[in-house]
Design a protein around this nucleic acid. Structure first.
Lengths: 351, 351
DNA sequence: CGGCATCGTGTTAGCGCTAACGTCAGAACC
DNA sequence: GGTTCTGACGTTAGCGCTAACACGATGCCG
């Protein structure tokens, strides 16, 4: 039992910092040897390696991050810029964040969290103060203002999403154009001649969020190819907005028989509202969602969907960032192919 | 235009690191003076201060985080441990995370993101390697295994949620006991004699997540006081689970007329299912939710609810962490009083 | 058997910053 | 006119680590 003074409960107990010198002494080697054992940057005999590792374990040594960063100009931290908006898909964002953090750990890196409201200045701050080695940016807009800053900073960076001009930058995303296209094909194959896209909130389109536009264009192009009548609407994430949407889409003289929903927040309300209107899925109307699989499963009717592979994207973003750190790699735009899973909310048109 | 060599696009451009010495030279003072201007730890004449600030701005100086941490043993980083579980309230978690990051910035701190799967070892790692000055832990269980580690580490820590034995630790949370109580009072005041609590997934109870239990006990105790018949069930977040739940609650010879829903994920499905059963809200059944206000608003029927003040909690957690850093402060358990907002999904019992 | 890789290890100069210690001028006091 | 005090600043010793340099001991070749 440790007794540290007259008062038995000191407010904060000073941590007994273990340094590399302590380890070196315990193992009977020089500090640099310990360092080299840890970094593997030069050959070490099996016996000393074992002795060093043993001492490290016994003493509970953890290299001081600041000192290491100072000496090596490597922080082993990647910065992750998350959006603050509530008009986008929160569960997807969260999945992505945790996937990034988890993936970073497998590369012995940590994640520093930045919010988008710091804007380009935040990127500059983090780089200039050497808080991180690489940056991952989510929620990229078409005319992304942070892109020129990233290019100029010259820091390894990975964007989630593809800006209009990705020149020189590494990007990852779902291939939303293909996703839009696949959705149309799926419904057209089932015989639907009148379909509709219920997209994200108008605000998302307005600020030119890249994925929304790409999905839309894939959707429209393929609709034209397949000779399918395709309505498209943005939908504000409220119940009233949704009602109007449906009034428009289902009340014309050629009502839509297939709905593609690229707006996770309104999936639940949509199904409720369809039920209220006595429209059954998929008999009266087919519903195809764009969302993570677990969300699709959890609905009243398990939904056919195109997965948003947030976890995979997070892992990939980290992987590419690490590659950039290892040595200059060609910038690339990596689009994951969409995967459509039928779950019973889409079916053939009933004549 | 900068031209840096024969090849016009070098993969990565070396950042021209500006040091405190550069600033000092430009301002005609010593490095320490610049440091003191920045920290305010000793008096500086107005003229010098201005000259220094000017040079800082002109050169775009940002102190090197590693060097600063090494010299001062202060990182200006708080670690935030987020849960990885998908069985809890994702939007609330995300709100909390962003609120924490934003609040930390107002104190000139950054946030390092840890995932709960690193467990106690992660806490040790972060502290031992001096990656952060303080730790904020979310999703605290009743018998929280990380609590003893935190106590022993002696690092300033704030828990979101209250473990069984919070002795010596600072905790913040919504007062879930009071929230459970308030819900019963609200329904009882409206004349309901038979109410039910639909709680989180059984997994949440099983692992003893503190808030679930506290809400439940507040609910039960007050139900007893008010002489209200109160059923309680955990509900798995699937549509089928929900159906069973409702079968039990609404089919007895004394069916519940008021539902308290402490499970954000099933709010949507619940309303759909009630509609399917031709039960209208609040005429046939009152629904009272525990969730953030925006979620309550976005439902088919705007829901009366007890707010989960994620943003406020995040801010508060950071604030308390900063207080702990400033100097040893008394550990405290801070419970925010619940706020119940009636939105029309709860009404008097129709006889 | 001398030279020359190669391997395993020690020694040490910083990395950029902070904070403890000095210094020095002028005000204030008796 | 000493003495003390109090701003306002300069000088410098580390913080813990990495990586460049150095060095002895083998082994192998001619």
């Amino acid at each position: 039992m440790v007794h540290s003074g007259p008062d038995s409960s000191p407010p904060y107990y000073d941590p007994p910092m273990v340094t590399i010198a302590d380890v070196a002494r315990a193992a009977g080697v020089s500090p640099s040897t310990v360092s080299y054992v840890l970094s593997g940057k030069r050959s070490i005999s099996e016996t000393t390696r074992r002795r060093v590792h043993h001492s490290i374990r016994v003493l509970g040594y953890q290299p001081n991050a600041g000192a290491r960063a100072l000496a090596s100009s490597r922080t082993n931290v990647v910065a992750l810029v998350v959006p603050l908006r509530s008009d986008l898909n929160v569960p997807v964002v969260m999945e992505f964040v945790t996937a990034t953090a988890t993936a970073a750990r497998t590369y012995d890196h940590d994640v520093l969290l930045l919010t988008a409201d710091e804007g380009a200045a935040g990127l500059h701050r983090v780089v200039a103060s050497s808080l991180a080695d690489a940056i991952i940016v989510m929620d990229v807009e078409a005319a992304e203002p942070r892109v020129p800053v990233l290019r100029e900073l010259g820091t390894p960076a990975v964007l989630i999403g593809v800006p209009d001009d990705p020149h020189g930058l590494t990007c990852v995303d779902l291939d939303f154009t293909a996703a839009g296209s696949d959705c149309v094909h799926h419904l057209a194959d089932l015989g639907h001649r009148d379909i509709a896209l219920i997209g994200p909130s108008p605000a998302v389109y307005r600020r030119g969020t890249s994925y929304a536009g790409r999905f839309l264009s894939g959707f429209r192009r393929t609709a034209a190819t397949r000779g399918v009548e395709a309505a498209t609407m943005a939908c504000v994430p409220t119940y009233d907005g949704l009602r109007e949407c449906l009034d428009d889409l289902l009340a014309g003289h050629r009502p839509a028989t297939g709905l593609v929903v690229h707006n996770e927040a309104i999936l639940g309300p949509l199904l409720s509202e369809l039920a209220r209107r006595q429209l059954s899925v998929p008999e009266d109307v087919s519903v195809l969602a764009v969302c993570p699989p677990d969300v699709a499963q959890a609905q009243a009717v398990p939904l056919s969907s195109v997965d948003i592979p947030a976890v995979e994207l997070g892992r990939l973003a980290v992987e590419l960032a690490m590659r950039l750190l290892d040595g200059p790699a060609e910038p690339e735009v990596r689009l994951l192919p969409p995967r459509l899973t039928a779950r019973g909310s889409t079916g053939p048109v009933v004549a």
